[in-house]
Amino acid sequence: FFFFFFFSMRLLSANTIVCIVKGCTDNFPLQIVPTVVEQEETECNPEFITHIMHRVDYPALKRMSEDIGIHGLPDELPADLENNEQLIQLLHTALLDTHVQQGELACNKCGRKYPIAQGIPNMLLTENEV
């Protein structure tokens, strides 16, 4: 197989992942150690961004964004996010237009590393990790 990789793990899904190795708890967020990151501009849907920001862990998003070189997110989200077009666009860029192609997700609690190859994180555990 030969593939062109246009889409791969975005920061929105990275913001939802926890380590599931047996006995490892309270490990969110995993750390992204990126080696290849790409930006792909897509149309912003403000309705989706304001909806999903209720779920996103904002401090984790801000830290992950900075880890991969996206700056400018404020320290705290304004209460009236829906009226802040510019910030919504910035959040869209961070959450949905930023793709980690290669690298790994690292658990800071147990040290487990989940490799990301060709845009797809490998979350498969070995038998003794289950």
């Binding site: 197989f1 593939f3 062109f4 990789f5 246009f6 889409f7 791969s8 793990m9 975005r10 929105l12 899904s13 939802t16 992942i17 926890v18 380590c19 599931i20 969110f28 862990d57 060709q118 845009g119 797809i120 994180p121 490998n122 979350m123 498969l124 555990l125 289950v130």
Partner: peptide, 30 residues
């Protein structure tokens, strides 16, 4: 669970994020 199927998904340029995972090990989302 199939990396090959995910490879096909990538080649078809689907818009979702993809993870190689075995659901029987328990999903990894918060």
């Amino acid at each position: 669970i199939s990396a090959s199927m995910l490879g096909v998904a990538v080649s078809r340029e689907v818009e979702g994020d993809l993870f190689n995972h075995d659901m029987g090990q328990g999903l990894f989302f918060r």
